[in-house]
């Protein structure tokens, strides 16, 4: 028997309990998911702490990078929401960075031979996490929308300037589209991470299986290896793109909350 064994593509998503913790009756155990949330957040905090340690007129490399991120999200918020979007900038920035780093760190290869608990884990590949972030965005949209516009927020579902007989048709569509927003937001990110990692794992699994089969099969193993390399490159793009899409959709929904009464 050879030692090569391809793990199930689902294994990478399994939650492994590291330290049992509970808050009352609620289980808040430290898991591999929690560990990677802490690693990602810790990395972001260390990076920004170093980048802003000596904020200077002439920035060093770290500060320049932080400023590029700042300007990127700042422009995004201003272009989408306008001047009033300024108050949401820290939220959108935190959201974008948290998702981006979670996506990117999930692509770090796991060193062979490590116990399962130490495997790389993509926290955004779990629906409950992306759904929680999406619900947070929608909650902010609804709370701010009513606080800012009062009942005028309902105008969001009835755009003005249409013939009256269109409203019975349009209002339900708008309501359904509004209610589906958190789901589409959550599932888009989750599904992209989930599918990407499964494809990566499948390609990698083929490589392992073919090498394990030996002989001519081992030589053919180069093909899925090239495939895995290409998919890894693609996944870097997807990791950025999905963080960006989540951030820009958050901005668009917040824009609705800010300008609902103008509709």
């Amino acid at each position: 028997m050879n030692t090569f064994r391809a793990a199930s593509p689902m294994e990478q998503f399994e939650i492994v309990r590291l330290v049992d913790l509970s808050l009352g009756s609620i289980d808040i155990s430290l898991t591999n998911s929690a560990l990677w949330m802490l690693i990602c957040t810790g990395a972001i905090i260390i990076f920004f702490a170093a980048a802003t340690r000596r904020a200077a007129i002439i920035p060093n490399r770290l500060q320049s990078t932080a400023e590029v991120l700042y300007e990127f999200v700042s422009d995004l918020v201003r272009d989408t929401i306008g001047a009033e979007g300024r108050r949401f900038f820290p939220y959108v920035f935190t959201l974008f960075l948290w998702i981006l780093i979670a996506n990117l760190f999930g692509l770090i290869p796991t060193l062979p031979g490590l116990p399962h608990a130490a495997h790389t884990f993509t926290t955004t590949s779990h629906l409950v996490v992306t759904l929680a972030l999406a619900m947070l965005t929608i909650t902010i949209v609804i709370v701010y929308g009513f606080w800012k516009n009062g009942l005028g927020f309902f105008k969001l579902f009835a755009p003005s300037g249409l013939p009256f007989y269109m409203y019975p048709l349009l209002v339900p569509i708008e309501v359904v589209s509004f209610l589906s927003r958190p789901l589409s937001l959550a599932i888009r990110l989750f599904a992209n991470m989930f599918a990407g990692h499964i494809i990566l794992k499948l390609f990698a699994g083929f490589v392992v299986s073919l090498i394990g089969a030996g002989g001519v099969f081992a030589a053919v193993g180069i093909l899925p290896f090239l495939g895995a390399t290409a998919v890894t490159a693609l996944e870097f793009l997807v990791a950025f793109l999905q963080a960006y899409v989540f951030a820009i959709l958050t901005c668009i929904y917040l824009n609705d909350a800010v300008h609902a009464a103008d509709h």
């Binding site: 939650i15 913790l21 808050l23 609620i26 289980d27 808040i28 155990s29 430290l30 898991t31 998911s33 929690a34 949330m37 802490l38 990602c40 957040t41 972001i44 905090i45 920004f48 702490a49 980048a51 802003t52 904020a55 500060q63 932080a66 400023e67 700042y70 900038f89 820290p90 939220y91 920035f93 935190t94 960075l97 948290w98 926290t123 779990h126 409950v128 996490v129 929680a132 972030l133």
Partner: peptide, 26 residues
């Protein structure tokens, strides 16, 4: 519950530091 708890903790701390310290500095 565990995922949601740690998400809230890490996201909350990150937001607090970003809004209070890092973003104003940059």
């Amino acid at each position: 519950p565990s995922q949601l708890f740690w998400l809230a903790v890490t996201f909350g701390i990150l937001y607090w530091l970003m809004a209070g310290r890092f973003l104003p500095a940059i």
